[in-house]
Simulated scan of single mutants.
Amino acid sequence: MPEYILFVDDEKLIKRLVSHYFRNQIRKGEYEFIFAYNGIEALEILRENPLINLVITDINMPEMDGLTLLGKIREFHENTKSIIVSAYEDIKMIRQAMSLGACDFINKPIDFQDLENTISRTLDYINHLKKNSYLEEQTQLPKTQTNQISVVSQLITESVYEINNPINWISGNLQEAQVVIKDLINNLQLCQQQFTDIPPEILQNIQEHGREDLVSQLSKMMISMQVGTDRLEQIGNNLTTQIKQ
Rank of each mutant, 00 (worst) to 15 (best):
R47E: 15
L188C: 10
Q192C: 09
K244P: 01
V160C: 08
P50V: 08
I14M: 05
V179K: 09
T122G: 02
I45S: 04
T68Q: 14
C103V: 15
K72F: 04
A97D: 04
D197E: 12
I163S: 13
M222K: 03
R74T: 02
Q194A: 06
K12I: 06
I56W: 00
C191Q: 14
L54P: 01
S171K: 10
Q113N: 11
A36E: 04
G236A: 15
K130M: 05
I206M: 09
R121A: 11
R23T: 02
S82E: 03
P50D: 06
L203W: 00
M98S: 07
Q207L: 10
D9F: 01
S120R: 11
L17P: 02
R16L: 04
D104E: 08
P200N: 03
T80S: 03
G66A: 09
R74G: 15
L43Q: 05
N165P: 00
G71T: 05
P62H: 07
S150D: 02
L13V: 02
S219F: 06
D197L: 11
E30A: 15
A87W: 00
N79G: 05
R47K: 15
P62A: 10
Q113P: 00
K130L: 05
I163R: 06
Q178N: 13
Q194D: 09
K28L: 12
E176D: 08
W169T: 12
E89R: 15
I185S: 06
D183P: 03
D230I: 04
E11G: 00
L232P: 03
D104Q: 13
R47M: 12
I73C: 08
G29T: 06
L13Y: 03
G29H: 04
Q25Y: 01
L67R: 02
H77G: 07
L218M: 11
M98F: 14
R121D: 12
I73W: 01
N186C: 10
L70M: 07
T57A: 01
N186I: 08
N79R: 03
I235W: 09
N168S: 14
E30C: 07
W169D: 07
I83P: 00
Q96H: 12
N49Y: 08
M225D: 08
E176K: 15
A97T: 00
A97P: 03
V151E: 05
W169S: 05
E30N: 14
T229H: 12
I84E: 02
E48M: 14
P109L: 10
H209L: 14
E233W: 01
Q175C: 01
E137L: 14
I223F: 10
Y134Q: 15
Y4M: 05
L54E: 01
Y125N: 02
P200C: 00
E201L: 11
I84A: 06
I185H: 01
C191K: 13
D58Q: 00
D10E: 14
T196H: 13
K244H: 12
R121C: 04
E137C: 09
N164T: 13
N164V: 10
F22A: 06
T146I: 01
D230H: 11
L135M: 13
P2K: 11
T122M: 04
F33N: 00
S120K: 12
